[in-house]
Each structure stands twice: as C-alpha cells, then as structure tokens.
C-alpha cells in the first residue's frame, strides 16, 4: 500500500501487536543493522543523541518529502550532537536507488544512514508496525534516544501524515534543556523562553521556592529563565 492510500482500520482483524513498545526512560532495544552506510549497532551511537525514525516505504511521495525535510534539519541536529537513522522494510538496494533518485530529481543529498529491515526484526523490536494500518510497512515513528541509550521520546504518525521536523528539533532542544538545567518545559516552549521549575515535593521546598524569585502564579507553577 502506498503511503497516500487511506487504509480502512481493520480493527476486526487486528491481533495484538507482536511486541510491546519501548518504554520512555528505559534502555532502547539493542540492534545490529545493515544500513546504507554499512553495518551499525545501537551502541555505535553511544555519546550522541539518536533520532531513529521509520518510514513506510521507499519511492513513495510522503516519505520522499519527509526524507528531504530530515536532510534539511540534519545540520541543525548535528550542532546539537544528534544523529539521524532511518528505517523501513526495504532492501539496501532499494534504499540506495531511492537516495540516488532523490538526489537526481530534487537535488537533495540524504546524509544519514537508512536501515534495511527486510526481516522486520528492528521494526518489531521497536513496535513500529501498526497492523491496523499496514502489516507490511512501518508507521512514521520517531524514537529519540539519549547519549546513554535511554529512550527519551516517541512520536507516532500514521501513513497518511508527514511529520513536522521543526517539532523534532524543538523536542531535542527541550530534552537537552531539561538535562542541562533540571527543569521542565511548558506547552509550545521554544529556546529562549522561560522554563518550568519542577513542582515542590515538600512544604520546605514550597517555602524555599516562594523566596527564590521565580515567576510564580501559584506555589505549584513557577517559571524561570535559563
């Protein structure tokens, strides 16, 4: 099924997924994969952030626009110590032909490796296949894995809907700000805006924060600049 086809949701025929999803805050499932840049293992990315993302299929229109969008943000991600790693249930030859086609037709270089997951091993490990949409293609999944190999965020989009790569950069910025300053980030936060001071757990912390000069609407919602 192409990524533009609107799939009926076959709820009556969908059995339970063959594996559960990775869990936020837990180690990312380890893998060794054949990619367009050679064989890589998850641990090869230790010390860098990793955005592991899947697409339904090579040579499909939404995926092609997404790949060009991911290529466009690759330099910004690299500045943030983030690597990209694509995946679909296609062969290395298909990936290579598609990358060359994108270069030929759109003038865009794809700078990141793409996993050829023909046996669905990694797609299954990461719960990337949504049988209600397609049993043979991966959904548009994004896994943000931190430098210690911990799953920090997951995004799932359906076959029909291309992802917003600006949101992926924003998400990385928010996670890295959280790690650096031990804070949380409010809705629609962008770098430069005030962040949320974690809520207090004790009365002593309540009293301390009220004296700390934070911008507080009430004791439980305080912001500060970082």
């Amino acid at each position: 099924m192409s990524d533009l086809a609107i799939a009926p949701v076959e709820t009556a025929h969908v059995s339970a997924p063959s594996t559960s999803l990775p869990r936020l805050g837990m180690p990312a499932p380890r893998f060794e994969a054949v990619t367009t840049h050679g064989k890589v293992r998850l641990e090869d990315f230790q010390g860098t952030w990793l955005v592991l993302f899947s697409h339904p299929a090579d040579f499909t229109p939404v995926c092609t626009t997404e790949f060009m969008a991911f290529a466009a943000i690759a330099p910004e991600l690299r500045k943030r110590n983030v690597e990209l790693l694509g995946l679909s249930i296609d062969s290395p030859t298909s990936h290579i032909a598609w990358v060359l086609n994108i270069k030929e037709k759109f003038g865009v270089d794809i700078p990141f490796p793409i996993i050829a997951d023909l046996n669905k091993e990694i797609a299954t490990l990461y719960g990337m296949i949504s049988p209600g949409e397609s049993k043979t293609e991966t959904s548009r999944c994004v896994f943000v894995i931190d430098p210690n190999g911990i799953v920090r965020a997951m995004i799932y989009y359906p076959l029909t809907t291309g992802r917003n790569t600006d949101e992926i950069i924003r998400l990385i910025d928010a996670l890295q700000t959280t790690d650096k300053h031990k804070v949380a980030t409010p809705a629609n936060w962008k770098p430069g805006e005030k962040v949320i001071v974690p809520p207090p757990a004790t009365m002593e912390e309540v009293e301390a924060r009220l004296k700390a000069g934070f911008e507080c609407k009430d004791w439980y919602i305080c912001k500060k600049s970082v």
């Binding site: 840049h37 050679g38 064989k39 293992r41 090869d44 990315f45 010390g47 860098t48 690597e83």
Partner: peptide, 21 residues
C-alpha cells in the same frame, strides 16, 4: 575512535562501525 572521528571528520558512529568492520 573519538580521536579518529575528530581527525577524519566523520561521525563517531561511522568510525566505530568502520573500525569494527
């Protein structure tokens, strides 16, 4: 590997996988 990556200006993951190979 991190020293090699800095020297050859390749991403660290590529250096690690290449050296392993």
């Amino acid at each position: 590997p991190d020293q090699v990556a800095a020297h050859v200006e390749l991403p660290l993951y590529r250096v690690r996988s290449g050296l392993r190979e």
